[in-house]
C-alpha cells in the first residue's frame, strides 16, 4: 500500500510541533497552513524567487522545494522567529526599516532569512558580496539598492552590538 501520510515532529522558532501530514505536502504549505505561520510567503513555488526562504538547522533553504516530511526532526526558524521579543526588531529588520529596503513587504521575509546566516558568516561584507548573497532572491519593488544599504547598516550595527564575536 502506498503511504500517503506520515507523522512528523518539527521544531519551529523554538516550539515543537507534531503532526500527521500528507507526504506530498510542501514544507511551505505546512508552515503556512498547518502551523499558521503566514510570514513565510510563496512567490513562485519553483525555487527561483526566494520568498519562501526559511532557516533549517541554521541554513537558508527554500521551503517550497522541500516536502514537509523532509523537515522531520529538524529545527526551523521563520521570519516570525527573528525579532528578539514582541514589539522589538532584529538589527537587520531595523536596518531594513531605516533604509526603506521594503515596499510591498512580500519578498521581505525571504530576504531577511537569507541574510541572517550570510551576516553570521561574513561580518563585514563588500557591496559585491552582498549583491551576490541577494541574487537568489527577487524583489519587484525596490530595485535592491536600499536592501544593499540595509545589509551594510545591519552589518555595522551587528558588529557594534557584538564586538567580541
Amino acid at each position: 500500500m502506498i503511504v500517503t501520510e506520515r507523522a512528523v515532529s518539527v521544531s519551529v522558532n523554538g516550539a515543537t510541533y507534531a503532526r500527521t501530514i500528507p507526504v506530498r505536502l510542501l514544507l511551505s504549505d505546512f508552515i503556512r497552513n498547518e502551523l499558521g505561520l503566514t510570514g513565510t510567503h510563496l512567490g513562485c513555488e519553483h525555487g527561483v524567487c526566494g520568498c519562501c526562504t526559511i532557516l533549517l538547522d541554521g541554513q537558508a533553504v527554500r521551503s517550497c522545494l522541500m516536502f514537509a516530511v523532509q523537515a522531520d526532526g529538524h529545527e526551523l526558524i521563520t521570519v516570525e522567529g527573528l525579532a528578539p521579543a514582541p514589539g522589538q526588531l532584529h538589527p537587520l529588520q531595523e536596518a531594513f526599516r531605516q533604509e526603506h529596503a521594503l515596499q510591498c513587504g512580500y519578498c521581505t521575509p525571504g530576504f531577511l532569512t537569507t541574510l541572517i546566516p550570510f551576516l553570521e558568516s561574513n561580518r563585514d561584507p563588500s557591496e559585491l558580496e552582498i549583491r551576490q548573497a541577494l541574487s537568489g532572491n527577487l524583489c519587484r519593488c525596490t530595485g535592491y539598492q536600499n536592501i544593499v544599504k540595509a545589509v551594510q547598516r545591519a552589518a555595522r550595527e551587528m558588529r557594534t552590538v557584538e564586538p567580541g564575536r
Binding site: 503556512r32 503566514t38 521570519v79 526588531l89 526599516r97 521594503l102 512580500y106
Partner: peptide, 21 residues
C-alpha cells in the same frame, strides 16, 4: 519619514489575502 507599515511586514505579521484562512 520612516514607514508606519514596516514593522508588521518585517516581522511576518502582514496580512496578505492568502494569510487569511
Amino acid at each position: 519619514v520612516r514607514r508606519n507599515e514596516d514593522p508588521r511586514f518585517l516581522t511576518g505579521e502582514g496580512t496578505y489575502v492568502d494569510d487569511i484562512h
